[in-house]
Design a protein around this nucleic acid. Structure first.
Length: 502
RNA sequence: GGCGGCGUAGCUCAGUUGGUUAGAGCACACGGCUCAUAAUCGUGGGGUCGCCGGUUCGAGUCCGGCCGCCGCUACCA
């Protein structure tokens, strides 16, 4: 059975979950649901990143230990994902014992392989940023470009990862695996970064102790990024369960935002090579959610809480908008006009209204019992094409194309009803053939909607009189034309998506 | 500065290796229908494919130059 292991980045626990986090997570969830529907064995991982100096200081300010503090924060993400119907299989926290064990095993292996060495680091450090700057990055007078305050000359003893040793092997890896980083523009960006020359990177700190202890030197903890990246192998048992690890690695699918491309497409593959394992099979880089042209980021004020949106528009419409309107890989503009427009045209008008009109006519012409579809319906061919297009699109990590294809089928079905006008005809086989075919389209649509709108898919399935739940079916086999059995009770019910004014 | 990308309908975008009349959705206009959530169906208007030049029987597509926007150039979904 094919395996599909999909990850989101682990989110920095101190940030409140916002729509940017939700965007990544909804995409990962939809891809995971698609692969489950395809019959693959799926592991969907998300979680929180809980180490680092900022967390330690914030905890101290609260009079709590760091762990007590993050114990309070991590559930905010779990709650946000529950609200968005995110069905992750594992939620990792970097403060868990399993993670400490895997980080220590992973980095010890790199150390044993000779790619970690101790050196003295000196540089210009901005305390508020917790970061070193190169001289040419500073403003006039030696000031931090962010805080506009003077930086300090600092000297620290660190362990370094010999990233520079991996230049050639990374280039070879990119060339041997053209699909390892998608879209291609991001792959080129990563590759040109590697070709531009790699410097060794400092991976430990002595100035902090809220982190994973370096097993060969008690004075040091790992810098938060190196501990964070390892979460992807922690979750599948690195250093603790070799059989499980071997089953899931390296066929992993990392979903990330473009701002962390370098970590995932350069540092992380190099760390894997250094540890003697294959780099990740795929890193899928997505764009940003923009609000009025501005990035929605952790530090700015333009954050939108996912819960506010789901309360206003409903969970599935929010998921649909994120998946349908922003091609994975491009930046996308989020706006109230955008979500309402998509809601009214696609969900209320095309889909919801189709169900309503079919249900009404089945009620008046067939006594409310759904008839079987017509094997010779023109829609059978359209459905076949659409299912094939959706399978290809979702398989290629392009939810917006999968959904676009699905709506083509719905529009064709509305047109078919106009042509046949079953509401004018006397009850009989001709009317039943038309309505049965429309119901069959709705059944296939329910299947195709499982990844994007799981609740809607279930409700559609139930309304047209089918037993069970659509996510228990399998694609593409169960989407073959003719699967609607006929004989079930079709329920009109309240509008699936009531039209919105504003 | 270096490397890379983009510019196609009012908006968002699609346009394989050059090849009939440049497409889709939305928006707009007109018409049909009245089963349906003022929904739906059909038709239509709207493009010097950023600009200039070149290659070619033929260029949105290839080449050169120019204009404009953006990304990366060692923090952050």
């Amino acid at each position: 059975m094919p395996r599909f292991y999909v990850t989101t980045p682990i989110y920095y626990v101190k940030d409140a979950p916002h729509l940017g986090h939700a965007y990544t997570t909804v995409n990962a969830d939809a891809l995971a649901r698609w692969h489950r529907l395809a019959g693959d064995e799926v592991l969907f991982l998300t979680g929180t990143d809980e180490h680092g100096q900022k967390v330690a200081r914030a905890a101290e300010a609260q009079g709590l230990t760091p762990l007590e503090w993050t114990d309070q924060l991590a559930p905010r993400f779990q709650a946000a994902w529950a609200d968005l119907d995110i069905a992750y299989d594992d939620f990792i926290r970097t403060t868990e014992d399993r993670h400490t064990a895997s980080v220590q095993a992973f980095l010890s292996r790199i150390h044993d392989n000779g790619y970690i060495y101790k050196d003295r680091y000196q540089g210009l450090y901005c305390v508020p940023c917790e970061q070193y700057y190169a001289e040419d990055e500073l403003l006039a007078g030696g000031c931090c470009p962010v805080h506009r305050t003077p930086v300090e000359h600092l000297e620290e003893e660190n362990y370094f990862f010999r990233l520079s040793a991996f230049e050639d092997r990374l280039v070879e890896w990119f060339e041997a695996h053209p699909d390892a980083v998608v879209p291609e523009s991001k792959r080129n960006e990563a590759l040109s970064f590697v070709k531009g020359g790699l410097r060794d990177i400092s991976i430990t700190r002595t100035s902090i102790d809220w982190g994973v202890r370096v097993p060969w030197d008690d004075e040091h903890v790992f810098y938060v990024w190196y501990d964070a990246l390892v979460n992807y192998v922690t979750a599948i048992g690195y250093g603790r369960d070799d059989a499980r690890f071997a089953a899931w690695w390296p066929s992993v699918h990392h979903l990330i935002g473009k701002e962390i491309l370098r970590f995932h497409c350069v540092w992380w593959p190099a760390m894997c090579l250094a540890a003697g394992i294959d780099p990740p099979a795929r890193v899928q880089v997505h764009g940003w959610l923009l609000l009025g042209g501005e990035k929605m980021s952790n530090s700015s004020v333009n954050q939108i809480a996912p819960g506010d949106l789901t309360a206003e528009y409903g969970v599935d419409p929010v998921r649909y908008h994120l998946l349908r309107d922003i091609p994975l890989g491009s930046d996308g503009e989020f706006s109230a006009e955008g979500i309402v427009g998509r809601y009214n045209t696609d969900l209320a008008n095309t889909l919801g209204n189709l169900l309503a009109r079919v249900a009404t006519v089945v009620g008046s012409k067939c006594g409310g019992t759904g008839p079987a579809p017509d094997p010779a319906s023109r829609l059978a061919g359209v459905a076949g094409e659409v299912v094939a297009a959706a399978v290809a699109a979702w398989g290629a990590g392009q939810p917006h194309l999968g959904l676009e294809a699905t709506w083509r089928l719905l529009r064709e079905t509305n047109a078919e009803l106009e042509a046949a006008e079953p509401w004018k005809a006397e009850p009989g086989p001709a009317v039943e053939a038309v309505l049965g075919s429309a119901l069959e389209v709705l059944r296939i649509t329910a299947l195709l909607l499982v990844p994007a709108m799981p609740s809607t898919a279930r409700e559609l399935w139930r309304r047209i009189g089918l037993a069970g739940v659509p996510e228990d079916r399998r694609l593409p086999a169960d989407a073959d034309w003719g699967g609607y059995p006929g004989g079930g009770t079709v329920e009109k019910g309240a509008p699936l998506f009531p039209r919105r004014k504003g």
